[in-house]
Simulated scan of single mutants.
Amino acid sequence: MRQPELLIQADAEDLAYAVASRFITRVVDAQSTGGVAHVVLTGGRVAAVVYRAVAESPARVEIDWRRVEFWWGDERFLPDGDPDRNETQARDALLSHVDVDPARVHPMPADTGQGAEAAAATYAAELAGVPKFDVLMLGVGPDGHVASLFPGYPQLEVTDVDAVAVHDSPKPPPTRVSLTFPRLARAREVWFVVSGEDKADAVAQALGGGDIPAARPKGEDRTLWLIDQAAASKLA
């Protein structure tokens, strides 16, 4: 497996537009043989800017949006439409502005009273038959978590299912649903999109081989760390 590649932009805005451009190119490439592109979206402050940049880019017309399958790496287990859900963020910034096929948008289940374990099982079943993601985007927390896989939590060691419930999250809301490491690993390209000085220690640890969750996901073909100068400030 190739070593991760590091690409540094001046600031969060430059980073967002660089990621947006790369995203459009990658999806077009994935569709070039006539197939469907499978992409995994993330949440967070940079992700929202990336999605808006994609929606505003003239190059977005190069994508056949009806042939994109959208997935999520994790989700806050909240009612449908809650502004804190990653799905809501992505719909507001991108999906409502392009001609997606609603049947190809796969949000993690919202909280309807069924419990996060049932929601995780439902999502794992929906993922059955999806061989690989073409591109999977991840943010990184200051503590080094990715998706909703937090340092020291038992979900880090789950290998027999594709999605798990997470309770007592160290950041709100306390209940979440997350893909597991084996499912995150089934991606041709994994992109870490990270901005801000508060993430610099985690970036340095992950790229230095530290024992944190962010050090673990790797793309089968390519692993990219797309970060800004502030997030890169602790790198040697």
Rank of each mutant, 00 (worst) to 15 (best):
A206L: 05
D160G: 12
L207V: 09
R183F: 06
S148W: 00
F181P: 00
V190Y: 00
G210W: 04
E189Q: 15
V203N: 04
D162P: 07
P170I: 10
T175L: 03
A163Q: 04
L184W: 06
V190R: 01
F181W: 08
L207R: 02
V190H: 02
P174F: 07
D160K: 12
F192P: 02
T159W: 08
R188D: 14
L179K: 01
V203C: 11
V161C: 12
L184D: 05
A147L: 08
D162K: 06
E189Y: 08
F150P: 00
P154V: 11
D160S: 13
K171C: 08
Q155Y: 02
G210Y: 08
F192T: 03
Q205P: 02
D162N: 14
R183D: 05
A200Y: 07
G208R: 12
P182S: 14
F192G: 02
A202V: 04
V203P: 02
S169G: 10
D168T: 07
A206N: 05
V203Q: 05
D168S: 14
A214N: 04
S169P: 04
Y153E: 14
F192R: 01
S178F: 03
G209I: 12
V177A: 08
G152S: 14
F150Q: 01
L207I: 09
A147S: 15
A202E: 01
A147V: 10
A165M: 10
V194D: 01
S148D: 02
A206S: 12
P213V: 06
T159F: 09
L149V: 11
A163K: 03
V158P: 01
P154F: 08
S148G: 05
V166I: 14
H167W: 12
A163N: 04
R186G: 04
R186T: 13
A163V: 09
L207W: 02
K199T: 11
G208F: 09
A163F: 05
R183Y: 10
D211W: 05
V177M: 10
D211T: 13
W191L: 06
V194L: 11
R188S: 13
G208V: 11
G196L: 05
P174T: 06
V166E: 02
I212G: 03
E157F: 12
F192I: 01
T159I: 15
Q205D: 12
G208I: 13
K199I: 11
P213Q: 09
S195T: 15
P173H: 13
L149W: 01
A200D: 05
P172W: 05
D168L: 08
P170H: 13
S169F: 09
G208W: 11
P154W: 09
P213T: 07
H167S: 13
L207S: 03
H167M: 12
A147D: 04
V190M: 07
A165T: 11
G210F: 07
R176L: 07
A185G: 15
T175N: 06
S148P: 03
D160F: 10
V190W: 01
A204M: 08
